[in-house]
Amino acid sequence: MVDIISAKSLGSNDIKIDGAVGEPFCDDAKMSMRNVDVFYGDNQAIHDVSFDLEKNQVTALIGPSGCGKSTFLRCLNRMNDLIPICNVKGSLQLDGEEIYGKQMDPVLLRARVGMVFQKPNPFPKSIYENVAYGPKIHGLATDKSELDEIVETSLRKAGLFNEVKDRLDQPGTGLSGGQQQRLCIARTIAVSPEVILMDEPASALDPIATAVIEELIHELKEKYTIAIVTHSMQQAARVSQKTAYFHLGKLVEMGDTKQIFTNPRHELTENYISGRFG
């Protein structure tokens, strides 16, 4: 399995990473990151990463464990602010606005850039409350019926409504793992974000639940720009249009998913996707 052995143990340090190869930039970028460095205290986790997230596309971030892909993802909506020792340098822009700029309110940013986490983490409240919480705090609904509508459409988009419509008042924590993760996706959609970040959204789920989530991601890209971190190369190949390969905190290669998996340009990428290491 890919995620058991970390890249450091592979003796691949002698292969040089000399800037990202492939096509990390595009014309229709929703988010663009330039020369991003991330430090945990004195430890540098991300080295000089630059690429774009294309609008209404699914971009997969792949790479061996500890390569910094999750860290990077969490910079995109400033979730790393919760970690006091984390320090981000470089330029990250959402529609041309600097994410770490003084003008940007992290609360507003997170409303525009939603996140789905690795482990399903519904609030210990009812299913309805889980979905309604975001719209409520942002004041997106003026009355109860409008809120009901947001909850229903969000649950529908997440493909969960038919399964839970009779028990919206039951606790969200009582659902199965796959349902919980879809509930978390519905919760994220309810705020109508522009970008959705997914941090290994299916890693805790069984294959059937995974398939449902992947199908969902497919539909969601019509409306949203999606970045997904995944350990499963098959999943990356199935759901994404663009793939970025990270290695030891550096972006090695980025390009069309098809091209990355059929004809990688960098030796490390080739080693990784062919399973030569990991």
Partner: peptide
């Protein structure tokens, strides 16, 4: 994870 979930939704 609960704090992350709420923060990720844009809760202050």
């Amino acid at each position: 994870s609960i704090r992350e979930a709420a923060t990720g939704l844009g809760a202050s």
